[in-house]
């Protein structure tokens, strides 16, 4: 099962390597990972997507907690949450395909962020499935380059 963990940690050198070292050392799996400073610049928030049985995810959560530099670990996929990824996709945009590319971008509410005679660079955000969907549609037209972020996620506020 896929789990999205939100981990609050000290914003200090070496902390990320404690987290990734824990995963590699114990054979846990990381599907994606994304970190940045929080409002409080002494802390970072790390969103980590992993898969595993409930027992493994429980072990992952406890092991993360055990790291001295980790302050809080929440499995936000346990309740309602929003998740986003972003991708930058450079796709062929020649005379014959330009209109089609623009239509697809529009459907996915993407943005053209760089233009060259033969290609557009497109920015899209959304869930991992949405990003995958636009990639699948653009692929036959001709994707030249792609860069994706890991997932970031936030629990929905309690109603």
């Amino acid at each position: 099962m896929k789990h999205t963990l939100s981990v609050l940690l000290q914003n200090k050198p070496g902390v990320l390597s404690r987290v990734t070292g824990l995963f590699s050392g114990r054979g846990f799996n990381i599907e994606s990972l994304s970190v940045a400073e929080t409002l409080d610049s002494s802390l970072s928030c790390l969103t980590l997507v992993t898969t595993g049985s409930d027992a493994i995810v429980e072990q992952i959560t406890k092991q993360l907690h055990k790291l001295i530099d980790v302050i809080k670990v929440t499995d936000i996929s346990e309740s309602e949450y929003v998740e986003r990824e972003m991708a930058l996709i450079r796709v062929k945009a020649e005379n014959t395909t330009r209109a089609e590319v623009l239509r697809v971008i529009d459907i996915f509410r993407g943005k053209v962020v760089d233009v060259s005679p033969k290609a557009y660079a497109v920015e899209v955000t959304g869930s991992a499935t949405k990003i995958q969907a636009i990639i699948d549609i653009l692929r036959p037209i001709g994707i030249k380059e792609i860069v994706r972020t890991g997932t970031i996620a936030m629990a929905r506020a309690p109603k």
């Binding site: 072990q59 406890k62 055990k66």
Partner: peptide
């Protein structure tokens, strides 16, 4: 005292 020891190898 270490929560990670609990249910690590046996339930």
């Amino acid at each position: 005292i270490d929560p990670t020891s609990i249910s690590k190898n046996v339930d």
